[in-house]
């Protein structure tokens, strides 16, 4: 573990309060919630023990931090989930890549469409 710990703890949010029913907003964006839900469900349906996901997440976080990678928590979560899903044969890397390309295409198409008025 690197020793030059940033003193970011000064930025700890001051939300030390009586808990609301669910404390605080968990997910910054909808896809983060989807990635969370997928990991939980795949554990519940027996695709992997939680321990395996938890260990993969820890490895992913460690790798990112030791490379000074600034990726956000749920990006690491998603990386761990993808690699475990591939390793356990739930999906292949090729089909995941192919599907992502299709999704990106769709995404760009939607995006272009949104901006039609501007051009």
């Amino acid at each position: 573990m690197p020793d030059n710990t940033p003193s970011q703890i000064d930025e700890l949010p001051a939300d030390i309060a009586v808990p609301r029913d669910n404390g605080e907003l968990q997910f910054a964006q909808p896809w983060e919630a989807r990635a969370f839900g997928m990991a939980v469900l795949l554990n519940e349906n027996g695709s992997y023990p939680w321990k395996h996901f938890s260990e993969r997440l820890a490895e992913t976080i460690h790798t990112a931090e030791s490379h000074g990678d600034e990726s956000a928590y749920y990006e690491r979560w998603l990386n761990a989930l993808e690699s475990l899903a591939i390793e356990n044969g739930l999906v292949s890397r090729d089909e995941l890549t192919q599907r992502a390309i299709e999704q990106a295409h769709q995404h760009n198409h939607d995006h272009d469409h949104d901006h039609d008025h501007d051009h």
Binding site: E32, A35, Y74, L78, L81, E82, V91, L96, A100
Partner: peptide, 8 residues
């Protein structure tokens, strides 16, 4: 990440 999550 959003696209990859949707693909998965």
């Amino acid at each position: 990440a959003e696209i990859r999550a949707k693909a998965l």
